[in-house]
Design a protein around this nucleic acid. Structure first.
Length: 828
DNA sequence: AGCACGCCGACT
DNA sequence: GTCGGCGTGCTC
């Protein structure tokens, strides 16, 4: 003992760290800190540890103690990766809450939260960054050696590199190479996000004075009249709107693409490519310089006022009411106090355009976080949020995991969107709900925005748990769509129906197409016909796994199960009685498209449902075609109602509202109301009157009346008063347990067994596993068991404790062999 | 998540 | 007789 200074005393203490490993294991593990690293360890820093026989992982320090574990000998930490923590203590608390609330492991949360480049493991693959030219003379010997090796073999694992260098500690070298942008850390090579581009035209300023313009016209009219038309059309358009696109000009002038091309070559027009949003916005609505309408101003003040009293406020504003402008004012407020802001959007609404416009507004202080970003970009955003370089972050679901220091405000736009909920890998979190907890950790506020709030949100607002601000007026004089309810029954009697279309809808469609406007038809079923039935013995083919009737798909000529994906050939004779009188009952999008193509042979039709969007770019192609007006009528399922607005869609037809009104779901009325309201909201934007045609056998159905009145309160509250027995979430807390297995038969037995185990504790509050509907995800069949508790009859904590115990027993029972049970908590 | 260990079916 | 399938348990 040569030294007695305080510093050396600290070095002599034996420290242990509890770390979170990025694995689905139930506990945190304890490692021993070598003396020389005593001053380096800190909560939230990354460390490299060996776990199991040979694997190295990046783990996060969750806590530091001096107490040695008693039952085992702790392994040593191999290295400390960071100079300062990459995960804040608040985040660790947040992770802990997520793990607890959504019944998963902290390791799984870590996996979802950290970009993979921050969690290198021995099997991680490394490759050269091809997008970046680097100067190899800047590298040291070892770094140089690695790049050389990567020239020969494009992919190396970290253990390969350890062998190559003949040393165990390679992480710091890789870290530095990554930071110098020399290497990439591979993940599944995610498709890079391609922004959508549009060509904008401006007239060469040379022709701004009347004389030179006159001159231009005289030349053009003689030699190229089409080009003259194009210039005239440009003048007309530019008087109406701020920016003119090439496509708009082609359409307006009737001149061909080539005339415009030659005008660009002659430098009459100056062409410029710009990134464009897929939302209904374009250059013509100005976000940088806007004034709030009266209604918006009142709503803003009300939101500000309510945010002083409540932690969460719901802004319920009809489609096109200009909620974004209100958000921008609120973001400014929060920024003025020096706090950070998180602006959450569903993935589909995150486009470069909205980002660009907010960038114009907030400069370089705004960061964006996307699932389509590659890892380098994600790490960069992570670091910049950590270093407080970004004051505003615009992002999808996973951005709730960024290392914020001082969140003043979280905005959750389109709060009702189901894409905020992650289903497949744990953690099965809902970013909207997690955001509320996150804001709470920061003593910040949450604004939820929606035109069609989720039922639970509206319930919380009406029961004063959340604040509530209503904005019922569309912005900028945009009219709410006219809604016309048409009785299918009456038109059938009058013989004015043409296949599935009423005369009203036919007329509206024809008019819209004549005006070069577009139509969206909504039919809540895909396939051709949902039921095939024998006319003699009423036999219907059913799925062998799920016991639901099989849907006929004309495209494949087969019968499909929409739950598990099972397919079989269409029988030509009834398998039960041998008769040949087989009948298709009901109809889906395929049939609607089919019949419409016969009624309107000239209209350009397209279909958007799961079947037509399964392949990689097909959704994008459909959207592009719609935007470029290569489609007159789009037939689709729920997909057409999600997030996308097109300026020229003026007519929305709901082919059969009754299939929606009888939605086979325990939240039936809410779902049908939302669906109808969302679809309806898509009609008519930017100065065009929209129209919604609702075809139904039941024109007096209350839900339809409420959609017309945009009346949430009545729907929800009378419903609750009248039918307390209905399975509405605000009265119930629901926990879903998913049972997974590759074999549907075993799965069903196990689900049944688990349900019975749970019944021993919870009695009749366990629903399931009937009816035998089985979903298939990847190669597993999944069956849910729902636990439904009346509110206040059981604490969710207690329920979860019991469930955990049952699951643990279940997993050690012989019957449970091979099944994985994954709980999915619905917090309402 | 990996990985080893162990227990049953079809092969040189 | 073994090779290898997966089901099970453990990793600080």
């Amino acid at each position: 003992m040569l030294e007695f200074s305080e510093g050396s005393y600290i070095q002599r203490k034996t420290l242990f760290v509890e770390v979170i490993l990025p694995l689905a294991i139930s506990r945190n593990y304890t490692y021993r800190v070598p003396f020389e690293m005593n001053s380096l360890v800190e909560t939230g820093k990354r460390v490299v540890v060996q776990f199991g026989k040979s694997k190295l992982y990046t783990a996060i320090i969750a806590s530091i103690t001096e107490h040695a574990p008693e039952k085992y000998e702790a392994k040593y930490i191999i290295e400390v990766l960071d100079d300062k923590p990459v995960v804040t203590e608040r985040q660790l608390k947040f992770w802990h809450w997520i793990a607890e609330y959504y019944m998963c492991n902290e390791g799984e949360v870590m996996n979802a939260a950290l970009p993979s480049a921050l969690k290198l493991a021995s099997e991680t693959k490394v490759m050269l960054n091809r997008d970046y030219e680097f100067d190899r003379t800047q590298l040291n010997d070892k770094e140089f050696l690695i790049t050389e090796a990567l020239d020969i073999q494009p992919e190396l694992t970290i253990s390969d590199i350890a062998k190559l260098l003949g040393q165990k500690t390679v992480m710091p070298i890789l870290k530095s190479l990554f930071e110098k942008n020399v290497i990439n850390i591979s993940e599944e090579v995610s498709e890079r996000y391609k922004p959508r581009r549009k060509t904008y035209l401006t007239l060469n300023p040379e022709y701004n004075n009347p004389e030179s313009r006159k001159e231009l016209f005289t030349i053009l009219e003689k030699r190229a009249p089409k080009q003259a038309d194009a210039v005239l059309a440009y003048m007309k358009l530019s008087r109406q709107q701020k920016a003119v696109t090439k496509n708009e000009l082609v359409e307006e002038s009737g001149a061909g693409d080539s005339s415009i091309k030659s005008l660009i070559e002659k430098e009459v027009f100056i062409a410029e490519e710009r990134t464009v949003s897929r939302l209904g916005y374009d250059e013509n609505d100005d976000i940088a310089n806007f004034t709030l309408s009266n209604a918006q101003q009142i709503a803003l003040q009300e939101v500000q006022q309510q945010l002083t009293e409540k932690d969460v406020v719901l802004l319920h504003g009809v489609t096109s009411s200009g909620k974004t402008q209100i958000y921008i004012r609120l973001i400014e407020d929060a920024m003025a106090t020096g706090k950070q802001v998180l602006y959450l959007l569903p993935e589909i609404a995150l486009t470069t355009h909205i980002i660009e416009r907010l960038r114009v507004y907030f400069g370089t202080h705004i960061g964006v976080y996307h699932s389509r970003f590659n890892d380098n970009e994600r790490v960069e955003v992570w670091r910049k949020v950590l270093d407080n370089e970004y004051q505003v972050v615009l992002g999808a679901r996973s951005s709730v995991f960024l290392p914020f220091h001082d969140l003043g405000l979280i905005i959750v736009d389109e709060e009702h969107e189901t894409s905020y909920k992650q289903y497949d890998p744990a953690p099965r979190y809902n970013a909207r709900d997690a955001a509320i907890y996150l804001a709470n950790l920061h003593k910040g506020k949450v604004l939820l925005g929606s035109a069609t709030p989720a039922f639970e949100t509206y319930f919380n607002a009406r029961t004063k748990k959340f604040g509530l601000v209503e904005l019922a007026e569309r912005y900028g004089g945009v009219q709410l769509p006219l809604i016309e309810v048409v009785s299918i029954g009456k038109e059938t009697k009058d013989k004015t129906m043409q296949s599935h279309f009423t005369s009203v809808l036919m007329l509206d469609m024809e008019q819209a197409i004549a005006n070069k406007e577009q139509v969206i038809l909504f039919q809540n079923r895909r396939g051709y016909a949902p039921i095939l039935m024998c006319r003699i013995c009423a036999y219907t083919p059913k799925c062998i796994n799920c016991d639901v009737s099989l849907t006929y798909h004309k495209h494949s000529g087969k019968l499909h199960c929409h739950y598990c994906g099972y397919k079989e050939d269409t029988p030509s004779v009834c398998p039960a009685c041998g008769s040949t009188h087989l009948e298709y009952k009901g109809f889906g999008t395929e049939k609607v498209e089919d019949e419409l193509s016969m009624l309107m042979p000239d209209a350009r039709l397209a279909r958007m449902d799961l079947d037509t969007t399964r392949s990689r770019n097909s959704l994008q192609t459909i959207l592009n075609n719609l935007e470029e007006k290569k489609i007159d009528v789009l037939v689709g399922t729920q997909m057409v109602a999600k997030g996308l607005d097109f300026a020229d869609v003026t007519v929305i037809g709901i082919i059969n509202a009754d299939s929606l009104l009888k939605y086979p779901d325990y939240r039936a009325n809410e779902r049908s109301f939302q669906m109808l309201a969302q679809v309806s909201g898509r009609a008519g934007r930017r100065g065009k009157q929209g129209k919604v045609v609702i075809q139904t056998y039941d024109p007096n159905h209350r839900v339809i009346k409420q959609v017309i009145a945009n009346d949430y309160a009545d729907l929800y509250f009378t419903e609750m008063e009248e039918r307390k027995s209905f399975h509405y979430p605000p009265f119930y807390r629901i926990i879903n347990l998913d049972v997974k297995h590759k074999n549907p038969e075993i799965l069903y037995n196990q689900a049944e067994y688990l349900a019975n185990e749970l019944r021993k504790h919870f009695g009749e509050r366990v629903i399931g596993p009937e009816p035998p509907l089985i979903n298939r995800i990847r190669n597993y069949y999944i069956k849910s068991i729902m636990l439904k508790f009346e509110r206040d009859t059981i604490s969710i904590v207690k329920a979860k404790a019991v469930i955990r115990e049952v699951i643990t027993q279940f997993q050690t029972t012989k019957l449970a062999k091979g099944s994985i049970v994954q709980p999915d908590v619905d917090p309402y």
